[in-house]
Design a protein around this nucleic acid. Sequence first.
DNA 1: TAGATTGTTAATCGATTAACAATC
DNA 2: TAGATTGTTAATCGATTAACAATC
Lengths: 207, 207
Amino acid sequence: MSDKKISDATIKRLPIYLRFLERTKASNIKSISSNEIGNLLKFNPAQVRKDLSFFGDFGKKGFGYDVDHLILTIRKILQLDKEISVCIVGFGHLGHALCHYSAYQQDNMKIKAIFDKQQDKLGNEFDGIPIFNMNNLTDVIKEKNIKIGIITVPHEFAQEVANALIDAGVKAILNFAPITIHVPDEIKVHYADFTTELHSLAYFLEK
Amino acid sequence: MSDKKISDATIKRLPIYLRFLERTKASNIKSISSNEIGNLLKFNPAQVRKDLSFFGDFGKKGFGYDVDHLILTIRKILQLDKEISVCIVGFGHLGHALCHYSAYQQDNMKIKAIFDKQQDKLGNEFDGIPIFNMNNLTDVIKEKNIKIGIITVPHEFAQEVANALIDAGVKAILNFAPITIHVPDEIKVHYADFTTELHSLAYFLEK
DNA sequence: TAGATTGTTAATCGATTAACAATC
DNA sequence: TAGATTGTTAATCGATTAACAATC
């Protein structure tokens, strides 16, 4: 177990390992090697071992990793062993899709509130998740102890929504709005920018 | 203008520049410096200049870049000056959201077909986009000359859908299914994996 | 001209990977 | 024990950034 700084790249791979291991467990496989993980996820096996060794010595030389144990460990590293409350701001088509998706997910990260400017037109709940007007954002986030905000509003409003979320106590943001948002250093932002991914694919098509 | 190999990282930034420049143009700004671009997009200005200089000498020393010209150039580099046909496979909530989104976008990349196993329950079109049964995938893709496929089916079916798309002639895939897919080297895959992004955010929350 | 900003080189930084001793 | 696979070091690879001459 090393104690070097853990890179963002490593952290982003952990949920990929976790998801893979959960499916491995569901297939009744008890142990797995870095080689097998690497082959199936298209990562270098040395990278898999290195990523995991940042957090402890989980492997058994000659045998590989115990699937159950690794699942529990990665969950703990990512803090997915605790319950984490999330909200969605902007309840358009994408917001709807994410809520549906979340309802099926079996993890400790649950959407606890939906915010939209037009709450009156949307009703009071969706899939059991309460819908609030934007005016109540600060109060609800504090009351429900929400730590992560998902932004799915149009790009024009993304920065002001981010500001409001941070003021209310949110510490991390997943931004689906197609714009760069500016936040204080201690706030973590990840982007889910599928238009960018799609447009960059065009480059690789034959001329 | 250098002729080194252009990195994937550079290519992925091009659509971000492009989107930003289109908004800059809409605000009636005619020219912009790498410093301004960098500040607003949170990129290093030297990186902006380097990215752009791979493709030509667009800047004017002492003045910066002509916005109109840069937009046209990046479009051309990305091949977004031509029409590119795209399909969506899997018409659940996410697929619906993407189609809606696409309908509003003003670019040359248009969704030309939707495929779903249960086409009979979904009707014949959505927002003007025809819906087909999966059985017709190969024929429709060939007929409509579709080059990019978006996968939004459940993870269990993602690999077989990818295989079918590639067999039919698709050259690039945007995969929303939460699983690694295996494809031949000449096929480009980008991932739009928001669950991973969300779960990795938990790591950064206070303990 | 003076000031600003590019394009590019060289330096730095960081991430990936090969290799192998340790050992289950 | 023999074979397999880890954890980790060192090497490599690649991407970012600082610096500055060129020049509009």
